[in-house]
């Protein structure tokens, strides 16, 4: 049996059901906790979060993969309570959203040390919570190119993925050549890497989708819903129809087995205003209907939301 670490313990992949693969309970840049403008009472945080997860569950969603990095407000105790009360599996990550979100203690660290941190969080647990990480998050810092620190984190993540069998999700799929080289050098099958945000408005034009596919990497269309049609779209927004057409074009090329979809929403953002009107349930309320409207069939949707995530998330050893 293949299993996945959730914050409440391992579950069989057979039980994962519909998966939201790249999400956040709440995300904030490190240091944002010092700025009171973002503070919320616990009442407010639960009020913003619980109904979304309950709705997700009602729609048939069963697993929520939280990719909030170590220094970004990741809060496994909170996720444990949310999961227990809503029935949604929550998978927490180890790792960092990008080198520019790793605080000094980690930014100064060696590959070996970072790999030990990741392995510890996957095999022993995060802090004293008992929650074990189920995926590793890495990413490209702001600026468009992988920094030396980004690369150190990718290499440590690759080593931890090889040892533990959990997959890697990336923040951004731009500048993938150094990443691919590192994964090859560390002996990690590219099928264990989901190159994320390949669809966002700012980065899609500079993301080499075919190169990633040819290398055997997985491609994340995981910012569905950050549409330029929103009243106040973020800078990474994209025209809704354009994103879907791009997605359909890759499906038509036969990329289905390497594609995964998500919406990267915050249930209750921690250090930024968030994007009003965008929730994890975009998946059910907008994305799936949009897919059906352009002729994507139920089997394909099932593959995207259930089969591929199960295969990807299942720990390989």
């Amino acid at each position: 049996m293949t299993k996945v670490n959730t914050v409440l313990g391992p579950v069989p992949v057979a039980e994962l059901g519909i998966v939201a693969i790249h999400e956040h309970i709440g995300y904030g840049m490190p240091g944002s906790e010092l700025d009171t403008q973002w503070w919320k009472t616990p009442e407010q945080a639960y009020e913003e979060t619980v109904p979304k997860l309950r709705k997700f569950h009602e729609y048939g969603g069963r697993t929520f993969v939280d990719v909030t990095g170590i220094c970004n407000g990741r809060d496994p105790n909170y996720y444990q309570a949310l999961s227990a009360k809503t029935g949604v599996n929550i998978v927490a990550c180890t790792g960092f959203v990008g080198g520019d979100t790793a605080l000094a203690h980690f930014a100064r660290a060696s590959v070996d040390y970072l790999a030990q941190v990741f392995i510890h969080e996957i095999t022993v647990g995060i802090g004293n919570t008992g929650a074990k990480a189920g995926v590793i998050k890495v990413g490209v810092s702001r600026g468009g190119k992988m920094t030396e620190l980004d690369q150190r984190i990718y290499r440590a993540a690759a080593r931890a993925a090889v040892v533990t069998g959990v997959p890697i999700l990336t923040h951004l799929a731009i500048d993938p050549k150094p990443a691919v080289a590192i994964f090859h050098e560390e002996g990690l099958d590219l099928d264990r890497v989901l190159f994320g945000h390949a669809d966002d408005g700012l980065n899609a034009p500079i993301t080499p989708h075919d190169y990633i596919y040819d290398q055997g990497g997985r491609i994340g269309f995981d910012t569905f819903g950050y549409d330029l049609e929103l009243p106040d779209p973020p800078f990474w927004g994209r025209k809704r129809a354009e994103r879907m057409a791009h997605f359909k074009a890759l499906l038509d090329k036969g990329y289905l087995d390497k594609l995964m979809v998500g919406v990267d929403a915050n249930c209750s953002p921690l250090g930024w205003p968030g994007v009003k009107g965008h929730t994890v349930n975009y998946l059910f309320e907008d994305m799936i209907p949009d897919m059906k409207a352009i002729g994507i069939d139920d089997d394909t949707i099932h593959h995207l939301l259930v089969d591929s995530p199960a295969e990807f998330l299942g720990m390989k050893n």
Binding site: M29, G31, L34, D100, T101, A104, G271, W272
Partner: peptide, 12 residues
């Protein structure tokens, strides 16, 4: 070097 990313690479 000891600041958080919130101050150095904000989400703008």
């Amino acid at each position: 070097e000891k600041l958080g990313g919130y101050f150095l690479t904000p989400q703008t």
